[in-house]
């Protein structure tokens, strides 16, 4: 309800609120996944496994647009804005620094919204394969989406042959972010 945490809110309350921010965001990734052509042709088991492995990375791409490098603030999907300083005080400093760095790199590619959406689809289906049963089906879907992304990007920017490879190089960045930060702790108040 408050864009910037006032002094009257305890750090615990801010932390609870921050933790809650992820809930609607995760639900939106699930809805987004269902809209990816071919995703729901995968077995439900494999859909769940990809979402469990890839949602954090999709969120990292999605959250990039919520970073304001000039103001050094982050706005979450429930509309609340936190300064980097206040979030750092909650112990999220290393994650946020890594995300500012990632968002600057991704932002420099100046993707259009549809390109960003297709990139997020590629990110999701490129997630870790542990636990996937029908690996072939997932790989075929990944190949189709990468082809579509390449076609979209190169048709719009035929003179920039480096853009698509640079974009694919963001995939290992996302895996690193995932490995370093998905074990961060959140706290939810039990009333």
């Amino acid at each position: 309800s408050c864009p910037v945490a006032p002094a009257s809110r305890s750090s615990q309350e801010v932390w609870e609120s921050f933790s809650q921010c992820f809930t609607p965001a995760v639900k939106e990734v699930v809805e987004f996944a269902k809209s990816i052509p071919g995703f729901q042709t995968l077995s439900q088991h494999d859909q769940v496994m990809l979402l469990k492995s890839g949602t954090f990375q999709v969120l990292m791409v999605r959250f990039c647009s919520l970073f304001d490098p000039k103001e050094r603030t982050v706005t979450f999907l429930n509309g609340q804005t936190y300064s980097l300083a206040s979030l750092r005080a909650l112990g999220m400093g290393s994650l946020l620094d890594a995300m500012f760095e990632f968002s600057e790199k991704l932002g420099s590619l100046c993707l259009e919204p549809d390109e960003m959406a297709l990139f997020m689809a590629v990110v999701l289906v490129s997630a870790d394969r542990s636990g996937i049963v029908e690996v072939g089906a997932v790989e075929q879907l990944q190949e189709n989406l990468i082809k579509a992304l390449r076609s979209l990007i190169t048709s719009r920017r035929p003179d920039d042959s480096t853009l698509f490879p640079k974009l694919l190089l963001r995939l290992p960045d996302l895996r690193t972010l995932n490995n370093q930060h998905s074990d961060k702790l959140l706290a939810f108040r039990i009333d």
Binding site: F22, V26, H181, S182, L185, L186, A187, F188
Partner: peptide, 25 residues
């Protein structure tokens, strides 16, 4: 006094996804 459920971001994501699919079955 308030009590908290503490979990990792990964576990929280897993929990939401499992709930969503169970709800839609």
């Amino acid at each position: 006094p308030k009590t908290h459920r503490v979990m990792t971001l990964a576990d929280h994501i897993s929990h939401i996804i499992t709930q969503d699919f169970a709800r839609n079955q």
